[in-house]
Design a protein around this nucleic acid. Structure first.
Lengths: 147, 147
DNA sequence: TTTCATGTAACTTCAATTATTACGAATAAG
DNA sequence: CTTATTCGTAATAATTGAAGTTACATGAAA
């Protein structure tokens, strides 16, 4: 299965945008992410709908942050992306008639729900500002290194 | 992405086997699971390698449990299946040069690792016997209903 | 008006499980 | 011994959703 890396991508993109004065184009972001510009636009469109970024076409256009780094949590980003499925493991049949399978589903659902709740709780308390701070700690007082 | 339902499948299969005196054929299990007999054999082969079930070919052959229900935990089953990826979400690049992306990966890895640890802890303490007990509670003292 | 850049639609590619077909090997019944 | 049954496994398609690609329309600024 191919894993969804959009959350990882937008975090990377937003942090690069935060270190930039003007807008960044899809092409520039794509080069940072080693990705495709169309995919970048497609993914960033989700964040635009959520009011986190803005885009302007034409000369000197591109993408800019429209919210404070401290006001954007990983959870909000996950939601902005449409809350994609977190787990690659799931029930074979979500609405079984078989009582045995109902027991199996109930037990697995409970365990996965607990794990998801923990993850969302963590995501809730991590903001882009936290990530930026972590990045600053990694900088060995060299010039801001791009990728 | 297509979700992996093998853990769910083998739980369902093992519980049906537990309620049976003799062996169950791949065809019978496939009918229970609404699945394909070849897929059943392929999946059950993992559990055979782990010593949880046995198979015999030919007349009156099929699959039998070779371990106690209380001795098989969800965690052991997950391991027997080769510990497939749990999350459908992941980093875009696992070995980034970019310091920004390293921060992103570190933060996400930590959160996902915590969620995985919780899930594995739950799996460790849930046995097939627990599932069988849950199933018994669901039975409205009707005849053992098959699917 | 020309040039960038976004906005999208319409594909193709990719990855991993699941499904299907086919055939060989082993076991037990007759 | 022959036959029916059942597992073992290889080879190939179907499936699903993200990611990549191509193409073109739209909008903004020089």
């Amino acid at each position: 299965m191919k894993r969804d890396s959009r959350l990882s991508s937008v975090l990377h993109a937003l942090l690069h945008m935060a270190e930039r004065d003007g807008p960044m184009t899809s092409g520039e972001l794509a080069r940072c992410l080693h990705a495709n510009p169309v995919v970048v636009r497609r993914t960033m469109a989700f964040l635009r709908k959520a009011g986190m970024v803005g885009s302007t076409p034409g000369h000197a256009g591109g993408w800019i942050l429209t919210a404070d780094l401290g006001a954007i949590s990983l959870r909000q980003l996950h939601e902005a992306l449409g809350e994609p499925a977190i787990f690659a493991i799931g029930n074979r049949n979500e609405t079984p008639v078989c009582l045995v399978e109902q027991s199996v589903n109930a037990v697995l659902d409970t365990a996965f729900a607990e794990a998801e709740a923990l993850l969302m709780q963590r995501f809730e308390h991590i903001s882009l500002a936290d990530l930026a701070a972590d990045f600053a700690r990694r900088l060995p007082h060299a010039a801001a290194g791009e990728d």
